[in-house]
Design a protein around this nucleic acid. Structure first.
Lengths: 338, 338
DNA sequence: ATTTAGCACTGCTTTTTCTTGAGTGCTAAT
DNA sequence: ATTAGCACTCAAGAAAAAGCAGTGCTAAAT
């Protein structure tokens, strides 16, 4: 357990470093505390010995370590209410009757990205939570038609396919066949079901079954691939001094472009379960705690409504404005869920 | 008109600079030409005087000026056939029967971006070329439904909307009404048509017309906004030495993220009409010649098929491998059009 | 037993100087 | 017209020097 003053000093250092991204000196701290810089220095030494602070070189000021941020987040941080102005902007999005939930979410995370200068990520429900609701085929011309697949959560996937020498009748037959057999199937199981349950039957009723079957098969395999992930404000990384190295940017961007990697955000890491913020289900993963990149912090939460669920996350530097971001996420989560 | 040797030298310099991005010295050139470096130097001086070459400082080697690139492209460049291996990869995409045209295009431009390390852009036909083909409404639950809009070119836009206390019947009536009244309308005129032709009529037949009308109106205004633009391989810029400055990257990325800006690629600049490559409709805009950014070259072409048309462009540094890229674009264009 | 002033020390940052080398431009000889 | 030769330029790198922000430790003060 730390003393009151150690807590104060740690808090000041973390907050100062978050602001300026420069090692914090004993001088700066002692001005805000009524004691001398020498005292602060010996305290800082102690905090370094426990591993909460670090130096960049022998005679530099102090920088929070990952453990330091963790301690700050768990014990020192006071959630900061956002500016009334910002709150208003967000509220306006959710109050807008014309916007459906998914639009509210993407618009508000766009706004948050702008307000905070961090990158935001929206991860919709993964495909196995979506059940097939309906298949629709709309002919475009003699050979081309658009296949539309809708899930019970209102997600839509579409694809234009070409079928030569296949009669309209046959297609309609196939569609109604598929609709009958596989509606209600989780999307990621559709491919298997098509193969083992529909394929054997389709041959009996439909003449050019091979071609038609293949076309549909591909529409569904596409659906599963597309992961319903949305990254907003990647450019914000270019503003941060800790990412001024172009190679670091490249590394991050490659990860942010890879939906497989991003999916990891949703995974609950085992063991370490103290990254939840008091009862609000906001989770914080600092540096090595997250599975994406050691140089970023990820703050995330999940939402659940009657019709849908998903994860929203904010990715920024380790010296993220934790207090603001947590508050914003709480706010958004609440608004989504009602 | 330049002498034979001046042409040779210019060509060598441009090609060398494209390869290494370092000022080219007289020594390097004279090794490949049977003459001394002194001779090359005086020729280089002459080329600089006409404005085809530049120096980075008094005693540096030469770098092509924009005018130099232009001259190279117009007079010196020999189109380079691509490697058989690359050609094969591309052909495989177009021969794949399971892929519809738009997939072929995006997949092949993805491939080109990887092969060349440049960024590619696909600009689909703009919305006024698309005619409304069909509107479909699929109920999700009591309040939510998904509206799907399909155009005659097979483009699909969808949106989930919420309508409280509106009967299924009323909605169906509205949909068939709209379908009857505005099918065949260019997408970007739909909004106006809805306002002046549908709105007056809808009130007569539908009870909660206000709410339903608004919902549909918003679906269409969204459609017009989304510009059908696809940028592939933005990260490639991070590899180029001329874009090693993070601020330059920021500038470029902001432009590439702005669909309004990207639309300018399709605009035909007035006056200057000699940027077409011999009869192939490949257009080249070097540095200041393009409207996006002075530090890039844009090579583009348009394609036109029975069902669709659009523009594909490759964006890279001014020292782009013009010969390869032009060849690739020709190849793609041909393949798309047949 | 803390706290603080004082001072030596460390190492980053900036500036300065020097050196090196790749490259040019010019001139005079071929 | 071409070329060898040479003086000159400038960028880039290395090395040295100066400045300075900041620490750690010790001894005195509270």
């Amino acid at each position: 357990m730390l003393t009151k003053r150690e807590n104060d000093i740690l808090k000041l250092i973390v907050e100062q470093y978050i602001k300026l991204a420069k090692p914090v000196s004993s001088n700066l701290i002692c001005k805000r505390l009524k004691c001398s810089s020498a005292t602060v220095r010996s305290e800082m030494k102690a905090l370094e010995d426990i591993g909460l602070l670090e130096k960049t070189h022998t005679s530099s000021g102090r920088v929070p370590s990952e453990k330091g941020y963790r301690y700050y987040v768990d014990n020192l941080m006071e959630i900061k209410k956002m500016k009334a102005e910002d709150m208003l902007k967000l509220q306006r999005i959710f109050k807008n009757q014309e916007l459906v939930l998914s639009d509210c979410i993407s618009k508000s995370l766009q706004l948050i990205s702008d307000m905070t200068s961090y990158t935001t990520v929206i991860l919709g429900s993964s495909s196995h939570d979506n059940l097939l609701k309906k298949i629709e085929v709309i002919p475009i011309d003699e050979v081309n038609m658009t296949v539309i697949v809708v899930t019970d959560k209102g997600h839509v996937e579409h694809k234009t396919i070409s079928l030569e020498d296949v009669s309209q009748k046959e297609i309609e037959k196939t569609v109604s066949l598929i609709n009958n057999l596989i509606i209600g199937t989780p999307i990621d199981e559709v491919s298997t079901k098509l193969e083992y349950e529909v394929k054997p039957i389709i041959g009996k009723y439909v003449n050019q079954h091979e071609q038609i079957y293949n076309a549909f098969y591909h529409v569904f395999s596409d659906f599963t691939e597309s992961h319903n992930v949305n990254v907003v404000g990647k450019n914000k990384f270019l503003e941060l001094p800790e990412f001024s190295d172009i190679n670091k940017i490249k590394e991050i961007y490659n990860k942010l472009d890879d939906k497989e990697v991003l999916r990891k955000i949703t995974e609950k890491p085992s063991g370490n379960d103290n990254n939840e913020d008091g009862g609000h289900n906001i989770e914080i993963y600092i540096g090595e705690e997250n599975k994406i990149d050691d140089d970023v912090t990820i703050i995330k939460t999940t939402y659940k409504t009657k019709t849908d669920e998903g994860t929203i996350a904010i990715i920024g530097p380790k010296r993220m404005e934790y207090d603001r971001v947590v508050n914003m996420l709480e706010f958004i989560k609440e608004n989504i869920e009602k």
